[in-house]
Design a protein around this nucleic acid. Structure first.
Lengths: 228, 228
DNA sequence: GTTGCGCCTTGACTTAAGTCAAACTTCAAT
DNA sequence: ATTGAAGTTTGACTTAAGTCAAGGCGCAAC
């Protein structure tokens, strides 16, 4: 598959003309990262941004004593590192591949040149950044205003909605990663999952979780209910 | 002072030509909010964004049981509500005036039309959103990776740098607000301030704080030190 | 002044969640 | 199949920070 059609298939670039897509294709570089490889570390000089073609990437920060907070786990077609392109200078968090991950890389200079000539592209990026902001706002809300059971409930509901409103979905992250995403630790996560099972809110299979009581989880997520 | 010169003085619009500024002036509306008045509540339909001309505004969320997390406290020339303009639909948090606050209001439709014709403006907005993202990332890091003393230390250092590297600065927020900004409660804040005083890291006056040991605070903020 | 209302502080207590340590499960690699 | 490393669970314990309740401070309004 040639670069231009790959690019045309990326949601971020929806609505761009074939001509615009081929301009993007001209500046993009294909790169491959293997599991565990880092794209960049927090504080690195930012020279461009990435779009995932397949695989999985985590965006995270580490505390000095080693605790990890995962900001996002991103997959096919998700862009990352884009904020650093416009705010300049340094990546504010680190990015690491969780699997074999081919990406497209767009160098800052060339990409900004393109934007300067193309308001459609600019608007697409503005929408993207706004969405990111919204997601981060939700993360802050979760961390600060909810306790761990509430965060977990919200996360489960989100996953469930994502997978076509099925109430069973497969875990595509380890529980360690899930804990780091929820701002907690594996032990706590494990205990709370158990409490949810005890209260018949969910059921766990091998690598999967089934939601038994969506309403109950929603109440938990909104703070209207507590686990026994 | 006429609208065009007001706009030309706003950092967000730095680098725009006089012509561009007067186009902005043409779509901006001046509005006045008094202390305690809300601009919008979380979830409200978003119809535009604001720039503060004077006064003070807090951006915040409330948990169902009434706890408040303040995201930002904004002042003269700071824009807010801008993310909702591009992501569409709804404001993700609430905004309230903490003082008499005159603002400029830019309606979504007209502003987006302007951007569509003006890549310079688009780039300015991209930079703004990226900065916001960066600040929110730091907030997440603080909430999730630091304990309250560390967050407080980071906050104090930030305020101090802001006021021209003086080591004494005046509190322009109440301690209640400060607590909500740090993701904690007034009682906890009070106790930690006392511990910092005990350890001769800071000294408090009436409505002011003096930093005595910048290095010590920095160690605290970075998690290399603990309060006794 | 003095009244009253927010703001701030303090103390005693509770609790959610983290730490540490050990054991068990999975699964991939030899 | 065996090993080993990583992921996961469980239990006992610790701790940071929240809750509740009371009292003090400061300032504005009468």
């Amino acid at each position: 598959m040639d670069m231009t059609s790959i690019i045309a298939a990326i949601p971020l670039f929806q609505g761009l003309s074939p001509d615009q897509c081929s301009k993007l294709a001209a500046i993009a570089a294909r790169k491959y990262y293997s599991k565990g490889q880092t794209f960049f570390l927090e504080g690195d000089e930012a020279d461009g941004f990435y779009i995932i073609l397949a695989g999985k990437v985590k965006i995270f920060k580490l505390s000095p004593d080693g605790k990890e907070q995962i900001f996002h786990i991103l997959e096919e077609h998700d862009p990352f590192g884009e904020a650093a392109v416009f705010a300049g200078s340094h990546y504010p968090a680190s990015a690491q591949a969780l699997a074999e991950t081919p990406v497209l890389f767009f160098p800052t200079r060339k990409f900004v040149d393109l934007i300067r000539r193309d308001p459609t592209l600019a608007l697409a990026m503005l929408a993207l950044l706004s969405m990111r902001l919204r997601k981060l706002t939700a993360l802050v809300e979760n961390l600060s205003l909810k306790e761990v059971p509430g965060r977990l409930a919200a996360y489960l509901l989100l996953q469930c909605d994502g997978s076509g409103a099925l109430s069973t979905f497969s875990l595509d992250v380890t529980k360690n990663q899930m804990a780091a995403l929820l701002g907690t630790i594996p032990e706590t996560l494990s205990r709370i999952l158990k409490r949810m099972i005890d209260e018949k809110l969910i059921k766990t299979g091998p690598r999967s979780i089934t939601i038994l009581d969506k309403r109950g989880l929603a109440d938990l997520a909104e703070g209207n209910r507590k686990l026994g």
